[in-house]
Design a binder for these strands. Sequence first.
DNA 1: CAGTGGTCTAGACCACTAT
DNA 2: TAGTGGTCTAGACCACTGT
Lengths: 249, 249
Amino acid sequence: MYMDENSRLIAGTESMPLYLRVLETFRDRLFRGIWKPGDMLPTENELSEELGVSSGTIRRAILSLVQEGQISRRPGKGSFVTRISSQASLARFFRFRESDTGESSPTEIRVAGISVLPEAPKMVAEKLGVRRTTKVLKVQRLLLMAGKSVCTYTSYMPYNLVAGLENTDLTSNRLYLLIEEATGNHVVRAEEMLRANIATPEDAALLGIDAGMPVILIERTAYTHNDKIIEWRQTVGRSDEFSYKIRLP
Amino acid sequence: MYMDENSRLIAGTESMPLYLRVLETFRDRLFRGIWKPGDMLPTENELSEELGVSSGTIRRAILSLVQEGQISRRPGKGSFVTRISSQASLARFFRFRESDTGESSPTEIRVAGISVLPEAPKMVAEKLGVRRTTKVLKVQRLLLMAGKSVCTYTSYMPYNLVAGLENTDLTSNRLYLLIEEATGNHVVRAEEMLRANIATPEDAALLGIDAGMPVILIERTAYTHNDKIIEWRQTVGRSDEFSYKIRLP
DNA sequence: CAGTGGTCTAGACCACTAT
DNA sequence: TAGTGGTCTAGACCACTGT
């Protein structure tokens, strides 16, 4: 078998092992949105033929993406691009304090406010990477567990990317699915940062605690294809009601 | 090739795929301390012969452990049981605020106090899972960056597991290596929990901040072989100096 | 040099999912 | 029944590490 000069493996990776070149090729397709969340990938055999690589090597690259959570596979069905879920964030690491009986309580989302801002506040413009003259959608929501407020979500989105979303029922913790349905734009990945803080009077009012109590503050930036920012969100959580847990190594 | 009834794969896994049975077997050896941190594993071929399984299957099981960080492999040398490092905790997710120049600053550990408690305080006894009559070593340390206090570490250890450690130079962020050298006991894994809190007067004094400021509080439980608890630690960090960062999915 | 892990292939067999 | 991914094997070749 000879080296294919017209290889569809992406350029600039010639010195890498084959399975990494394949992996980079797949990453590129995800990044460009050629493979979108929910899509089924070509089968191993098809990819193997297309790229001129053994199916074992294809499998290896795909399994890396499965490890990262970008792809999920279902036996007998196929491989699919993962939809990022709210599950991916808090629920992966955070354990909400369980009730006295040890059961996990039912959750509820309540919308506290929706508004279209004709101009982006300075901070928001910076975080979203847009001009101050950009129209922005602001959504404020509340997460309740067993009827008690646990945390608040305040989201800012460039209006042109989510136009129409404000007329949707946002009482759901699957915001990104709603965005997808309303606008066709997919959220591909997100980054979060966590700090400790003290509840502002507004936080306190929404959460039903005293101002000055400690809260956990999470800042999230969510991206569509090509690294465009589609949402900037602040989560403020009662520290007595949820905490973060991890296992090492 | 026939099924070996005297297989050295651990019992109770007969219905699993082979590579998972091998994985469980390896986990068991790590758990029991048959393979200790720093040890070199038998080679793939040796394991393949010993368990009567192809080397590809052995490799697959080992790679899972590499993924988890339990094993590290060095080409041309061998596979080794990982030593848990301080790196594994904070440094993996936390980004300390970089200095104005963007460089990362040098760190320094200062010992703020060492004492052997003849009795375990109630809370400590609970966290360590020992009787209140148990002798406990308490070590309090301070992490400085660029001369500024960033966080405090307060550790409690059952004295019988770390006897002699109090006569060591603890000015190092590799506590577990010191324990290993002083006593031969290995720290195998740890769990951490994070909350927001408000600085107590003691915290504030050590960190050089005002009482009432928000702090991040991390509680850590570290284990030796057989799930015995060897350390319980509280870390208190200035929230303005470090924050937690993660990428999804 | 011999021995280690790292890459890559080819192919057999299985279990699950659709139609 | 045809097609998917899941498991398992066997073996070739390579790069790196020690002596």
